Simulated scan of single mutants.
Amino acid sequence: MPLFHVFGFFMLINAFRCGKTLVLMERFDFEQMLKVVERYRVSDVPASPTMILFLLKSDLTNKYDMSSLRRFLCGGAPLSKEVAEKFKRKFPQVEITQGYGLTEAGAVTRMIGPEESNQHPSVGRLNPNMEAKIVDPLTGEAIGPGKRGELWLRGPSIMKGYVGDEKETAECLDSEGWLKTGDLSFFDSAGFLYIVDRLKELIKYKAYQVPPFELEQLLLSDPEIADAAVIPYPDEEAGQIPMAYVVRQPGSNITEAQVMDSIAKLVAPYKKIRRVAFIDAIPKSPAGKILRRELIDRALSRCSV
C-alpha cells in the first residue's frame, strides 16, 4: 500500500508500534513483490483486492516460495466472499482479513482471529473508540440491523474538517460530530459491518438502484475475464444502464454478447449489464480503487463522436 494512503500510513505506524520488521518497496511490481516475500520470509502483507486477484490468477506464484505468508490484511476497496474463498483454497495457510477506514476517520473496523476473519464479505466489527449508525438516505432516520443505508461515524479519530472548504465540511459533518461517509452499508445482528457500495456510484436504472461492485464481482468470477469495472451509461428510457469495461484474459476471445448473457443468468432483470467495452487495463488509484470517472468520461466521449 502507498504510504500516503490512510491504509498504508496506519500500517506503517502499527509496524513501529509492534516492533515489527518492515520491508518497503520503492514502487509496486508484482513479481518483485513475490521475490521480496521469498527473500525476507514476509509473513504479513497489507493489500488491496487487486493484489488478491493478481495472486489468484497469476502463475508466477508457483515460481517463488510463499510458505512464510500467514496473513493478508485487505482494504482500500471491497473484497467479495467468492474471491476470499478462492484465495483460501489456493493459500490454505494464509488468513485473509478485511478492515475498513477512511482518510477522514482513520481505522474504523477490524477483524480479530480466524473466526471473525471467516465472516466474508464483512469488513469486521467497529474499533472500540468508534460509534456508528446506519441512516436512511431519504429520511435521515437511523435504521436497524440488516437494513441498508448510509454509514455515519463518530469518534476521536474523525477529522475536524476539510482545510479551506467550509461548504464541503458542513455537508459531511453534522453539528453532533457525525461523519457522513457516503458508503451504502449495513450491520448484521452480530455487529459485523458490510459495505455495499458508494452511494454516489449506484446506477439509477429506472426506479432501481444497481451497485456496480456486485456486478464487478460476478464478472471477475468468469475465468475468461482478468479485470472489470461497471459504470452508469446514460439512457433516454431508463435514465442509466449498467455498462461494463472488461479486460480479457490472455488468449480469450469472449464477446460482448457472451459477457451480457452470462451475467443476465445470475441477476435480476434490472441489474443486467446492457453495454460492454473491452479495454487493456482498468484505471485504478494506487490504493486499488477503480477510477470510474475516467471510464465514464471515456464512454461519454465515444458516445458523442
Rank of each mutant, 00 (worst) to 15 (best):
N62E: 15
F30R: 06
F7L: 00
G182Q: 05
R293G: 03
P232S: 04
V23Y: 11
R293E: 08
E115C: 09
K289G: 06
G164L: 08
K57C: 07
C172L: 14
S117Q: 10
Y162Q: 07
G113S: 13
V23A: 10
E236Q: 13
T181D: 02
Y233G: 01
V196L: 09
D297L: 14
Q217C: 13
I282V: 13
G99V: 03
W152K: 01
P223K: 10
P156R: 12
V246N: 04
M25E: 13
D227S: 10
R125P: 02
T50I: 08
F187G: 01
E171I: 07
P128I: 05
W152T: 00
E82W: 08
Q249H: 12
R17W: 13
E116I: 06
R154G: 01
F278I: 07
K289L: 10
I158P: 01
E176M: 10
I13G: 09
S68F: 07
F9G: 00
P46H: 00
K20P: 06
Q98R: 14
F192D: 05
G146P: 03
R298N: 13
T169Y: 10
E26I: 04
R148T: 14
I195L: 10
I158W: 01
M11H: 09
G251N: 08
D297S: 15
P49D: 01
E294K: 15
R274N: 03
M33E: 06
M260L: 13
G161N: 03
A228N: 03
I279M: 08
L179R: 02
I254V: 15
C18K: 15
F30M: 07
V42I: 14
V210E: 01
T169W: 11
V123T: 06
I263M: 08
E150Y: 04
K167L: 15
G76P: 00
A77F: 00
T61S: 12
P286H: 05
N253T: 12
L202P: 00
W178S: 01
S252P: 02
G124M: 05
E236I: 12
F278R: 09
E201G: 06
R154H: 06
P242Y: 02
P234F: 01
G101C: 02
G113I: 13
G140K: 10
M66K: 11
M159V: 07
A264T: 12
S285P: 07
L300Q: 15
K167I: 15
E150P: 01
R89F: 09
Y100M: 02
Q119F: 04
Y40Q: 09
K167S: 13
M1A: 02
A207D: 13
L102A: 10
R198A: 08
A264Y: 03
G288C: 04
D261M: 11
A277C: 08
L202D: 02
N253W: 10
E150K: 03
M111F: 01
H120N: 12
N118I: 07
P211M: 05
E224Q: 12
V6I: 14
L199A: 09
R292D: 04
P121F: 07
G76R: 01
G124E: 00
E216Q: 09
L295V: 04
E214R: 14
D261N: 15
A47I: 00
I195V: 13
H5N: 02
M25G: 12
P92R: 11
C303R: 15
K160I: 07
I273L: 01
G161P: 04
V23T: 12
G124D: 00
I290A: 07
